[in-house]
Amino acid sequence: MTDVGSFKVKTGLAEMLKGGVIMDVTTPEQAIIAEEAGACAVMALERVPSDIRAEGGVARMADPSIIKNIMAVVSIPVMAKARIGHFVEARILEALGADYIDESEVLTPADDSYHINKHDFKVPFVCGCRNLGEALRRIGEGAAMIRTKGEPGTGNVVEAVRHMRTVMSEMRALTLMPQEELMTAAKDMGAPYDLVLYVAEHGKLPVVNFAAGGIATPADAALMMQLGVDGIFVGSGIFKSGDPKARAKAIVMATTHYKDAKLLAEISKDLGQPMSGIEISTLTESQRMQERGW
């Protein structure tokens, strides 16, 4: 029997992206630079997170022609963002042939209580998380890939690190719990019980987990890989830097050779200015994109 768009096929694409870098791009020219640098996929959008942050207003799904024009020039997978809960934007992206949909806190949420029922789609979804409960709720809704949220558009890796450490330590705690404590753990973290059981048994998420939100240097990428993520999303960090080509290539190399400090020293040389960053404590609560998601 042939099965199109099964959960295995959805998670399978994420498995193929592992050890790779997914880069935010806003034009076909940027998409070509990303592919040339060795990106394993691109995220097609209208504005990168740091511009969304600077310009304010409501951030929505990109114009379909931006996504189509990018799909036309690269052979690697093209992802696109829909607003949290906006299942019609998601349907449009699916119809366009986007390879993955990011139901993303970078855009302005369309629903303040509910996320998209992602089981209902043939196209796979990736969603953000700050902790294990949030990751398992998204997987319960059908996400086939997870990314730690970090704080998008800041060029500051501290939140990505915090979210990854939180997820890892919460998973370790579950593996040590006796069976009778797991139901209460599921209740406390607001996570589906069957997925809590899965993590308690396997010590890992049932889907691939990438890092996102604040990665700006090859060393940032290698740091996240050493903390145990499967791959890297870079948003504003490449095309808001002084030399996008060199930096993109360096981040790809650092993600593969993340344990090789000598090579990382070579890779990190002469990359020009990184994007100028934002100290997280200067952001007000409403400016923190990571708070979006339920």
Binding site: M1, T2, D3, V4, G5, L13, S75
Partner: peptide
């Protein structure tokens, strides 16, 4: 031929 069966929405499993 790369991506010969189509984009991700056409990905499948079979016997």
């Amino acid at each position: 031929e790369r991506n010969a069966f189509g984009r991700q929405v056409a990905s499948f499993e079979t016997d």
